[in-house]
């Protein structure tokens, strides 16, 4: 009898995002404990994708945390209520937690416009404490770019992302760092450091094709799994984020 051939590419446990098209592209989900960058310009669906990732985790019984840096979480909540699969009890049960970063800054006494290396450590410890205390398995920071504005130097940004990534990974927490770039940017993060350090990059963009503007998603990098690198077109619906492959039509400029 011929030996069984195992074609599976990775044995790492997966954090299933619950977004079917994305899980397929990632060969089952994000490798658990990875820190990934969801990056793109405004209006490309980064926050929506990240929120859905958390809602599915919470529905699976995991404690999920959203740290909002730029927007008040009360405003964000209005974006997830229209989901067909959203249950308000997730928030009441403490499975889906929202924290506003400005409140964290205030409690830690981080009032300066630029943080020192010591203050970076304080911030990382504070996030790690919340994750540990609440046994958080999925975390989103929206956006990491806003935090990086307070770090300013590449050295401090590198230090922050390395430390937070390592700490969260050691706690078994899969993290999504939302990164904002301008539409013309030729890299995946504003400071150029975030993309090199993250375990994975999901790039979300707008593609103009003959006057039509399509929302696109591409997994550029993901450590610990074989993944698709093709470009997908996405739709943000009440049934969640839906993906289909971008049609090439025998080659399309920019596509």
């Amino acid at each position: 009898m011929a030996p069984k051939v195992d074609l599976s590419t990775s044995t790492r446990e997966r954090c299933v995002t619950g977004i079917q098209g994305l899980d397929n592209a990632l060969d089952g989900g994000i490798p658990r404990g990875n820190t990934i960058l969801v990056t793109g310009s405004c209006g490309t669906g980064k926050t929506t994708l990240s929120l859905e990732f958390l809602v599915h985790g919470a529905l699976d019984g995991e404690t999920c945390l959203f740290i909002s840096v730029t927007e008040a979480s009360s405003k964000l909540l209005t974006n997830i209520i229209p989901y067909d699969f959203f249950e308000e009890s997730l928030i009441k049960k403490g499975k889906l937690i929202f924290v506003d970063m400005p409140v964290v800054y205030e409690r830690l006494g981080l009032n300066k416009l630029e943080f020192s290396l010591e203050e970076v450590d304080v911030l990382v410890r504070a996030v790690a404490d919340i994750v540990k205390e609440m046994d958080v398995k999925r975390l989103v920071i929206d956006s990491i770019t806003s935090v990086c504005y307070r770090l300013r130097t590449q050295e401090k940004i590198r230090d922050f992302i390395l430390k937070i990534g390592a700490t969260l990974s050691s706690l078994g927490c899969t993290s999504v760092l939302v990164s904002e770039i301008s539409p013309a940017e030729e890299r995946y993060s504003l400071f150029g450091v975030e993309e090199a350090i993250a375990d994975g990059i999901i790039f979300m963009g707008n593609l103009e094709r003959r006057g039509d503007l399509l929302r696109t998603l591409q997994v550029v990098k993901m450590r610990g799994t074989q993944h698709s690198r093709t470009k997908y077109v996405l739709d943000l619906t009440s049934a969640g984020v839906l993906l289909v492959p971008l049609l090439k039509g025998g080659s399309v400029a920019g596509g």
Partner: peptide, 20 residues
């Protein structure tokens, strides 16, 4: 769907209705 040239969006809307 905005235009018949947005073929991916046609597939996405069908997918959505099937889910619904």
């Amino acid at each position: 769907v905005e235009s018949p040239t947005m073929l991916e969006n046609l597939m996405l809307k069908v997918e959505y209705l099937i889910k619904r």
